[in-house]
């Protein structure tokens, strides 16, 4: 726990696991962790942009999700990302939604 802000624990989502024996993770060293975080932020923002949301990393400790009008949600695990994004945007982020897929295809 951080003694200044009181934030408990850390993100141990399977796709960004805490580096430990037997587990694949890109969080093994500082550079690799920051490179992966930047890449993830970029890729997630490609999807969030469809509903005018934006994700930012907060010092590697938390995620800040914001709307174009300034509403903000802060959370500390990637597992909260999509529920928070849906709550904030009022829309769905369904990877099987043909409209979402068409827009992603158009974007690329």
């Amino acid at each position: 726990m951080c003694s200044l802000c009181g934030i408990l624990g850390c993100d141990d989502h399977w796709s960004s696991a805490v580096a430990r024996d037997g587990v694949y993770s890109r969080n093994g060293d500082r550079l690799s962790r920051r490179r992966e975080a930047a890449h993830r932020e970029h890729m997630v923002n490609c999807i969030l942009a469809l509903r005018r949301l934006r994700l930012a990393d907060w010092r590697g400790r938390a995620y800040v999700l914001s709307t174009a009008t300034g509403k903000v949600r802060i959370f500390d695990s990637l597992s909260h990302l999509w529920p928070e994004a849906e709550a904030l945007s009022g829309g769905s982020f369904d990877p099987l939604d043909p409209e979402l897929l068409a827009r992603l295809q158009a974007q690329s």
Binding site: W14, S15, R40, V44, L78, W82, F93, D94, L96
Partner: peptide, 8 residues
């Protein structure tokens, strides 16, 4: 892959 599977 992590983003896609998490969304799915």
């Amino acid at each position: 892959f992590g983003i896609w599977l998490t969304m799915l």
